[in-house]
Design a protein around this nucleic acid. Structure first.
Lengths: 208, 208
DNA sequence: TAGATTGTTAATCGATTAACAATC
DNA sequence: TAGATTGTTAATCGATTAACAATC
């Protein structure tokens, strides 16, 4: 099986669902999970077994606690990872405050920007540093990935610097295709497009 | 052809690419676009023709200006849509400031929250109102969709109120499956999962 | 005319679902 | 034992790619 973003998102949906179950529910069937989340039950079974290696018992289902632990493990909860935000605009600063990251073992340690107006600020206890200090910071603090939030025109240059600093993963909110060497993983996020697709559906619904 | 989020995102990638071309480039081939963006050329052609109805000419390609206009039209640039943010946490407030939305004709007009500490604030010129005023606001200001950012426990109740207000689309950042009537479209966003998948790839790469 | 490029039709690939035997 | 539920194998569905004739 192939781990796509779609699969990964569903796995975290399963995990959230399992975690909100009342504590007296100790076992659960894939059938129940599937119905609650509006998914196919075979899909749920396949993905649970893929991600957690969990073995269910016919008739009783899966042990909830085991499943939760295995999913957390697979999704990275127990495996800490350090990220920096590059470009401390309001979305960048919001991501420094974003609690949910810690559910996946992700910690934002600092932000970087080249605007005097934001340098020196603190967000959720972490500093906004000058972009000039990027290289020095990365040498001192092992950093795994960067959240890229800079203006379009700066994106490729900043990206090159991040790669030179040894980062191997970039989460880019900039809508241009970055050129990176083999071995560096880039994931593009387009918030506006996600939202706009919804409005597109609204319009098509009206036409019917 | 089916309009999925994947397709929609690629369309907006094409559009961004076309827009950053120097003005002297008036015609472009699907082959060039595909190569620049690292995609298959047949895919680009198919999606361009699907979304824009644009007709290319063998040998010369497509007229850039026509393509841009048609894509903007398809993606909603010329079709304004009003959104509210419900739950004015830092991500919610960042989305009120998010410039890119206007590229898709999206305008956030207000935010709602039930915490006294944020009610009355302004963000990008738009107010944070009391959640109590939601119904009244929606009666006075036609609103198309809501960006849902409230605590997990409140999500379903708030969602029900939004549906009762006549909203037909919800963009939810809350990781629970909402129950909505037929005809209401929900899109779930899981920022943390997107980022966590990247770190997962990092870890698997290390193991090789 | 020759070559680049389009758009279509058929083939492939991957993800989801259906069917079903195994088992607690 | 009978019924619920698992996990696997085969079928379907949809998205992407390959092949190719049409055409500027």
């Amino acid at each position: 099986m192939n781990l796509t973003l779609t699969v990964f998102r569903r796995l975290s949906l399963y995990l959230h669902y399992l975690k909100q179950l009342p504590p007296e529910v100790t076992r659960i069937s894939a059938t129940t999970v599937a119905n609650e989340l509006g998914l196919g039950e075979v899909l749920v079974r396949k993905e649970l077994s893929f991600a957690s290696g969990a073995v269910g018992r016919p008739k009783t289902g899966y042990v909830v606690a085991t499943l939760i632990h295995a999913l957390e493990n697979f999704l990275g909860y127990h495996n800490h990872c350090r990220a920096i935000v590059v470009g401390a605009n309001s979305l960048g600063r919001a991501l420094m405050n974003y609690d949910e990251f810690s559910d996946y073992g992700l910690y934002v340690t600092a932000a970087f920007d080249d605007r005097e107006s934001v340098i020196g600020q603190f967000e959720a206890g972490h500093p906004v540093l000058s972009l000039d200090d990027l290289e020095q910071f990365c040498r001192q603090q092992p950093t795994d990935l960067a959240i890229l939030n800079v203006p379009k025109g700066d994106a490729q240059a900043v990206c090159d610097r991040l790669v030179a600093c040894g980062l191997r993963a970039i989460w880019s909110f900039v809508p241009i295709a970055l050129k990176v060497p083999e071995g560096v993983k880039v994931h593009y996020e387009n918030m506006a497009a996600s939202l706009a697709l919804l409005t597109h559906h609204l319009r098509s619904a009206e036409e019917d």
